[in-house]
Structure formats: C-alpha cells, structure tokens
Design a protein around this nucleic acid. Structure first.
Lengths: 328, 328
DNA sequence: CTGTTAGCGCTTTCAC
DNA sequence: GTGAAAGCGCTAACAG
C-alpha cells in the first residue's frame, strides 16, 4: 500500500504539504498541488480513511439505523440514503435493530466507529430524549417520526394529508361506509393518519370507524375479516400501510370475494410491491427513497455547522391502480 | 469522551496494561483485569475503533456489495449478513453498485476505509480476476455465483437441483408442456437453472422450451404472453426467479386467465413477496438470509487465517402454495 | 505480569 | 508557501 509519505517523497515535498495539496486545505502553490496530485493519481493513491479519521476527527461516515430490513419499506429508504451519501463522499454504516436495548447497543458501536452522525428511522426508544442520549451528542436526524420528537431534525411526509387523500378518493367514488385499518395505537404515524382519516370523513358528514392493526400483512387480514363479519360492513377501507392493505386484499380474495367489487382498498406508502400484486394496489405514495436522501442532506447540513432544528416534510400523492372502484 | 488513558490513570496502571486488560490479549493478572474492566464499565468506556483499527490493522468491518437494494432478494440477504456480522462483532459497510465502474470505485472506497474483507453478491465484473483485483488482495467471498468464479470462496445454492425440483413437481401434477422463463443468458445462475430444467424434463421424455428473461417482473409478463399466444401453449412454467413468476402470473390474470387453472407457475427464491401475492406463489425456496450469514462466516474463516478456497452450497426445497395445480 | 517506547497514516498548529 | 513537530487513541514489540 502506497501512503502519503511515498507521494510526498516522490514529489520532493514534506508530508504536510502533500496533505494540503491533496485535501485542498491550507495554502499551497498551484504548481505543487498539480505535481502532488499527478503523482497521487499515477499511483492510484487512496488516503487511508482510518488515519484520516483519527487525526481529523471526522470519518465521513453516517450511521443508519433501521428497525427491520425485511419490511420492504426500509430497503427503499436505505437505497435513497445510500446513493445520496455516496454522492457526498460519505459511507453508510448499516445496522438493524428492533428493540430499545439493541438499538442503544448498535448506536454505541457505530459511535465507537466514529460515525459523524446518525439517521434513525422511526424511534426505537420511548422518548426523543433517550434517542438523543443514545446518539451521544452526535448530529441526528429522525425519519418518519414527527410528533414525538421535538428539538430534533426530522424528515417526514404529511401523514394527515396523505390519509385524507385516500378518504377523499373513496368518497369521490361514492363510498359512504369507509373504515380505516390503523397502525399500532399510540405511534405518532398511526395517530396522524387516523386524524387525517377522521377529519376528512367527518367533513363529509360520515362516521369514522377504526380497527387497530400493526402494519403487518396478518393484521390487515385479521382486521378486514372482523370488519366484513361484523354489522354494517364497510364498502371501502383505507389502511395504515401497503402491507396491511395487501393482507386485507388477500383475506377478501381468500374468502371468494372480489376487490374492488366487494371492497375497495387504499394502501399507504407505495412500496414497489404495491404495483406487483394483482390487482395493483391503489395507494398513497410517499417518495420513500427521497425520504432517505433528504435525511442524508439534512444530516450533512448539520455537520457543516448549521445547528438549527428543521423539519422537512415531503408531500404525498394518490396513485390509482386497481383496488378501488365505484360504490355499488 | 473518556479514553483509555483516563481508565488507565484511574486504575493506576499504564495504558498498555489497560489495553491488555480490556482486549484480553497478553498476560495481565486477573486482579488488574477485573479492576480495569470495572472502571471501564462504570465509565461506559467504549474503545475508539478508529484508533484501534489504525494501530492493529484490523477494522472489524466487512464491506458488503450488492447490485440493487430495491430488488427484494438482496435486502433479505443483507439482513442475514448484518445479523451474522453483528453477532461476531463486525460491522457492515454497505454499498450498492450495478456497473463494473461504480463497483470498482465502491470497493476502492471501502478498502480505504479499511474493511477486513468483502462480500460481493453476484459479480459486477466480467471475470473473477477483475473482481479479485478490485478487492485489492483482501479476503473476498462471492455469493450466488459459482461457475464463473474459480479460486474464490463462494456461497451458493444448488441451482441445478432447485430447477429440477420445480420441474419434478409439475410433472407429478401431470403436466407435459412445461416451459421455462430464464434469466439473462450467459449468466451462470441462468445457465445452471436452465440445465436443471432441461435435464429433468428430458429424463421424463419431454421437450424443453426456454424463453429468455432477465429476472424482472416485466420480462416474466412478456415471456408468458409470447408463450400463451404462440403455438402449443404450455400448461405450466418454471421461472428463473420469483419476480419473473409474479410478472407471469399478473399477465395471465390481466388477460382474464386463471392461475393455476390456465397456467401453473413455479417461482424461484422464495422472497417474502412470494407468500404475499394471491394466490401464493409455489416456488423453489433458498434460505436467502442464510446465504448472507454463511458468507459472513466464510469470510470470518478466511480472516482467521484459513486460506483455502471453499464453496459452500446450500440446499433448496420446494414450497407449494397456490400457483400450481393438476394438469387438466 | 507490567511499564516504556514506538509507531499506525494522516491532519494540524506553529514557525520560518 | 512550506516544513517540522505534535498528536489523534490505541496496540504491539521489547524490556524488565
């Protein structure tokens, strides 16, 4: 491995000058810069990032904590973050942790590895305070949590508006009995989407009806069965996420029903999977990759000294596919 | 940030002794070990991994290169690798690169970051030689490529047997016109699966029929349309992967056909998605997470000095769901 | 068993 | 503009 000493020697300058020439920081004559860089290039010299980190205190790496890689929502977000990071010369250190304990542990490991900051998707802890503590005073941006994290930069989509969008679509199709399958109660994302759902429904003079779910396929299936078997079955539902919507759809199909014939369904997220089921899932789209990319951008902003807390909110849109139809 | 000097000072020992006590390498009295560790624990001391890496030459991090995060196959593999790595105290540095150029670049960045070795999924280059060169003499294990990479440790599944499994299942169901939608021709995974398909079909005295695809949903749909519109339409197909199978299924459903009524379909991979479509996809299952985990294990083995090249081959199994039925 | 001495490869004052 | 020197926090010989 050729190191900066070799380069400096060959260029006939000190290591310090070579460093300045390479990084572009500090005064160096244009001539030396050119000479040093040419030599570095010829040797395909890659400065040792470890040494660089140790001495400069910055590692050009970002810790990304996601709750669950196998939920297709997160890889899409990771992809967005990864490419944004790469474009800025940062590397992603990935870790997946579900519970608070493992999250604390994982953040600690990443901290020891010197990540410059964290992107945390969701909040594995009970409070923003605990999260901040686990991040150890390092810059931090939270994705997809809004209410519960104050004083922390966040990147979110407008859940209230998104949920309202779904309801509006169903109302336009003539539906009047519209239920909502929610996420885990208490979670801010859940509550926000429920709020949007209820607001829009009430505005139309209709009665809201919420069944709790937990973002899983199974919970969507269970909820829809309960709904369909109960009194005054709905003709349409909105769901907290696409996975639950797909579970709901499968449950209807499994009992010989038809979608949207017997039940119109609107998902939420627009994961790639939404377009792959048959019929294609009508859903509230958020640009998931963008969520990750903006988080990187936000973090980068904080790393360059801008300390004010900011909330970037992305908009959502409805994408109509095959799971919604006119009320009969 | 408290560092090892603080710990050493408080314990009344030299930094070197503190280091030995903490790492457990070298002779230290049990008493000092205990004392030092207690102090470290109390301070929640986390040794700076950067410094540790610089001085020891090992970073306890693994570079993971995948071609495409958004293809659901890869996140499942990443999840397996990530948790196996974590269990061994290693951190995953993630990078996604499709072309040879960006792969070369990415590997170089990870090398500069001091990763101890690489796990490369697929081979972004034309040859194993180029891959080895891009990895810069660092230990390397390749996942999901077999033929084309010799002299390199690999983790694969038995593609020939897997493909044969699918065919056997269809033959048992009474099908005689069984086509195969393949992956990109020339790719070893493709060729192996085609070989297994042909072998098994010929063994039954049946005529093989292969249509080229490229692992995408669209290619599956296009291939099935061609097949169904052509002469002697098959009653069943096997596919190179689940995504193509799902595309095929959607294409049949979209034209008002039924699955498995009009066409039985067998996928390959058993990505989570396979269980989520309706009807559930019958498919050749490989334990994708295990693929990643074993890769980490293999790499670890090489890192501990065992240099012999090894190929670990995982077995596959058929999971029957709803897309296959008796021939009419 | 423990302390002392050198670095790992780079960045960063501080002089000149 | 450039060089010398110090040091980031730790590990790894080498003595004792």
């Amino acid at each position: 491995m050729t190191n900066i000493r070799d380069i400096a020697a060959e260029a006939g300058v000190s290591v310090a000058t070579a460093s300045r020439a390479l990084t572009g920081k500090g005064r160096v004559s244009a001539a030396t810069v050119e000479r040093v860089r040419a030599i570095a290039q010829r040797h395909r010299f890659q400065p040792n990032e470890i040494a660089r980190s140790l001495s400069s205190g910055r590692s050009h790496s970002l810790g990304l904590l996601v709750p669950d890689i196998t939920n297709p929502f997160f890889p899409e977000l990771m992809a967005g973050a990864e490419s944004a990071a790469k474009a800025r010369g940062q590397t992603i250190l990935l870790t997946a942790a579900l519970g608070a304990d493992s999250a604390r542990e994982d953040l600690s490991v990443l901290r020891a590895r010197g990540v410059d900051g964290f992107i945390v998707v969701g909040n594995p802890f009970d409070s923003a305070e605990q999260l901040r503590e686990a991040a150890g005073s390092r810059p931090l941006v939270v994705v997809d949590r809004s209410e519960s994290v104050t004083d922390l930069s966040t990147v979110v989509t407008d859940h209230v508006e998104g949920a309202a969008l779904a309801v509006r679509h169903l109302i336009e199709l003539g539906h009047t009995r519209i239920a909502h399958i929610s996420g885990p109660p208490g979670l801010d994302v859940t509550d926000l989407r429920v709020a949007g759902y209820e607001r829009e429904l009430r505005a139309a003079g209709l009665e809201p009806r919420v069944v709790d779910g937990d973002f899983t396929v199974e919970s969507g299936a269970a909820a829809v069965r309960a709904l369909l078997d109960g009194p005054a079955a709905p003709s349409a539902i909105t769901t907290a996420n696409d996975l639950a919507a797909i579970g709901a759809m499968n449950a209807v199909l499994a009992r010989g029903g038809s979608v949207p014939g017997d039940l119109s369904i609107v998902g939420y997220d627009d994961i790639v999977l939404a377009a792959l089921v048959h019929p294609g899932l009508t859903t509230v789209a958020q640009d998931i990759g963008e969520l990750g990319a903006r988080a990187v951008e936000e973090l980068e902003r904080q790393l360059t000294g801008d300390t004010d807390v900011r909330t970037v909110s992305l908009s959502t849109s409805l994408v109509e596919r095959g799971t919604t139809g006119r009320a009969s």
